[in-house]
């Protein structure tokens, strides 16, 4: 495997595992993806001693890759947990979601939206899996993790490059 992808894969997996620990979200908040990206760049630098300065573009790319891996793994873990427990956040937020759809005054379209939501809910409660729900959490995870991962990548590149200059 390309040396660039390995640190991203390892750190992304690590971050995703951490998201499954109860209470970890309270501690990590928005910092999980940026920190994972930072560690991934640090590992990349360690694996390439010949590279004196990491380019910002490489930092952004590594941050993005780490975030994508983290989002994919975190989503799959959530899907597995939902499959086992047959419940999810959607169950608790369903009344609120229904209210929102009703408030939009979409007429027959609102009815259809509520039907889709109810179908998702019943799928989760009976089978433990809903394709739409899986798609929704994967997409939202991909978007948010990617943004924060890239930010983490840029900051980590700045820090690691400064450290290298100092050691030279």
């Amino acid at each position: 495997m390309n040396k660039k992808y390995l640190p991203a894969l390892v750190c992304g997996f690590g971050a995703a595992v951490l998201t499954t620990i109860p209470g970890m979200e309270n501690v990590a908040c928005c910092l999980l993806a940026p920190v994972a990206s930072g560690i991934s760049i640090f590992l990349y630098k360690k694996s390439q001693p010949a590279v004196l300065k990491i380019r910002t573009g490489t930092g952004i790319l590594l941050g993005l890759l780490t975030a994508i891996f983290a989002a994919l793994f975190a989503s799959s873990f959530e899907i597995v947990v939902t499959y086992i427990t047959k419940t999810s956040d959607l169950v608790t937020s369903m009344p609120q979601a229904e209210q929102v759809v009703k408030d939009m005054n979409l007429g027959p379209a609102a009815e259809e939206s509520i039907e889709v939501l109810k179908q998702m809910l019943s799928d989760i409660q009976s089978k433990g899996f809903s394709f739409l729900y899986a798609l929704f959490i994967t997409l939202t995870n991909l978007i948010t993790y990617s943004i924060f991962g890239m930010i983490g990548g840029v900051v980590a590149t700045a820090i690691i490059n400064k450290r290298n200059i100092k050691s030279i």
Binding site: T56, G59, I151, A158
Partner: peptide, 12 residues
């Protein structure tokens, strides 16, 4: 974090 972020992007 913002200052580091900005300086790296400016360099870029």
């Amino acid at each position: 974090v913002y200052v580091f972020f900005l300086s790296e992007l400016e360099n870029f």
